[in-house]
């Protein structure tokens, strides 16, 4: 049972001459919270894009093993929707909600790949469709409640406060039933209290849903206190990995962050 759920081997990504990711290895185990840190422009978001199918890696392998039973499958080159169906869901650094849909509908979209009703079901609105629809609505509402957004159920996403939009993105990603949740700077733009609440929420999600979580974050306090392991990316290369304590004492990491005024 100690096989990694996500195993990234020597992934590379070139953007016409610029190497944004170079020989990056990373593993995530079951029920782990793993943080990916690094200075601005290090390639963290690019890494997420490469493993979720938004970009195709130029080289290397991305392997997943949702049940951690030791039979991984290769997913690089697969389309983003297929990757999500296989169980990796993400949020975006620059929030990408569906602005003119309500909060509830945003979460309902997340359940799309786990439901089936099609054109005929929609038009005839038969029993199976109605049941599925109600289940989707109820589940989505539960998730909204979980992230503390029950007040905003029928508000348009675009009218919600910034911090709440980030939470809505998490609920939407959870609705896809992932085994691994990928969060891209979930605390960006939040005040210390909100950050603390978010930290609690993330740990809570991990415990309640028994899933793994990987997050990109600049807030060192949050990263240090909640992650099981940390990876450090700099100029597209993985310069260190280890427990929070190891990372805090790693000279290479300190060097990479020197001059960075982040905290």
């Amino acid at each position: 049972m100690n096989n990694p759920v996500l195993n990234v081997k020597a992934v590379e990504k070139d953007f016409g001459g610029i190497r944004a990711l170079d020989d990056v290895d990373l593993v995530v185990h079951n029920k782990e919270i793993v943080a990916l840190i690094g200075p601005n422009g290090a390639g963290k978001t690019t890494f997420f894009n490469c493993i979720t199918g938004i970009y195709t890696p130029t080289g290397g392998d991305v392997l997943i093993d949702p049940t951690a039973e030791g039979n991984p499958r290769r997913i690089n080159g697969k389309k983003p929707n297929v990757v999500t169906e296989l169980g990796m869901a993400r949020t975006f650094q620059n929030i990408r909600l569906f602005p003119s849909m309500t909060a509830l509908e945003n979460v309902m979209i997340g359940t799309h790949c786990r439901t089936k009703s099609a054109v005929w079901g929609a038009i005839s609105r038969n029993k199976a469709t109605r049941r599925e629809e109600q289940a989707v609505i109820d589940r989505s509402y539960e998730l909204l409640k979980l992230v503390g957004l029950e007040k905003y159920v029928n508000d348009l996403a675009t009218n919600m406060p910034y911090g709440k939009q980030r939470r809505l993105e998490i609920a939407r990603a959870l609705a896809t039933d992932p085994f691994l949740l990928l969060l891209d700077e979930p605390a960006a733009g939040m005040n210390p209290q909100e950050t603390l609440d978010l930290e609690r929420l993330i740990v809570d999600i991990r415990d309640q849903f028994s899933i793994s979580i990987m997050l990109i974050e600049h807030d060192m306090k949050m990263v240090m206190s909640m992650s099981d392991r940390i990876y450090v990316l700099d100029y597209g290369r993985m310069i260190a990995d280890g427990t929070p304590r190891e990372i805090a004492e790693n000279p290479a990491v300190i060097k990479a962050y020197l001059g960075e005024s982040d905290d």
Partner: peptide
Amino acid sequence: SRIGRAWLALREDEIACQAMGIDK
């Protein structure tokens, strides 16, 4: 319906939509 919501989502943001598991 489920389909109609997927259409709207696709209209609003294609990338987010695909990342939510919808086949574009």
